[in-house]
């Protein structure tokens, strides 16, 4: 187990679908590890949040990003590319959470240094399972950069 963090883990959820976003939040709410989940709805907002621009001037630096690929305004792959090109942001683990099963998307994401590629589960049970795996592995087991 990781050493108990004093502050809750900051998670940025980049997701345009309100139903998916709510579901993810709902499942994360049941997690045992203290965390704080912020949601943005498109690629531009995501980058503003990360660069603390505009209305996100006081936004916290996330410890983990959950990134959907098919986003309005700026595509998830572009967001991923920008994050990984920035020396500060590139340290943040990015978990791609998408509907796409396309092998092309999988390859593209890993080539752009995504830390993990997950497809969105089809039902509640699987959703719960997926979130609990993220929680156990990424938030509990993995040593993250400070």
């Amino acid at each position: 187990m990781n050493s108990v963090t004093l502050r809750p883990i900051e998670i940025l959820l980049v997701e345009d679908s309100p139903s998916d976003a709510k579901l993810i939040k709902k499942v994360f709410d049941r997690a045992t590890i203290p965390h704080h989940l912020e949601q943005v709805e498109d690629g531009i907002e995501a980058l503003d949040f990360l660069y603390q621009q505009g209305e996100y001037g006081s936004a916290p630096r996330p410890d983990m990003i959950l990134l959907d690929l098919h986003l309005p305004k700026k595509d998830g792959l572009c967001v991923l590319a920008e994050i990984k090109a920035d020396s500060q942001l590139s340290k943040i683990p990015v978990i791609v959470l998408t509907t796409s099963h396309s092998p092309k998307d999988v390859i593209n994401c890993y080539q752009m240094d995504a830390n993990c590629y997950l497809t969105k589960p089809n039902n509640l049970q699987e959703f719960k399972q997926t979130v609990s795996i993220i929680e156990d592995f990424w938030l509990g087991f993995v040593k993250l950069p400070l």
């Binding site: 679908s17 139903s19 998916d20 579901l23 098919h70 099963h101 589960p121 089809n122 039902n123 509640l124």
Partner: peptide
């Protein structure tokens, strides 16, 4: 096919997941 794979699945996921949530 991209539209089918993404845009069609999302509402389906909402239907099944939220129905389950309702049940739960």
């Amino acid at each position: 096919t991209h539209i089918v794979s993404h845009d069609l699945q999302e509402p389906l996921r909402a239907i099944s997941s939220y129905t389950e949530l309702l049940e739960e």
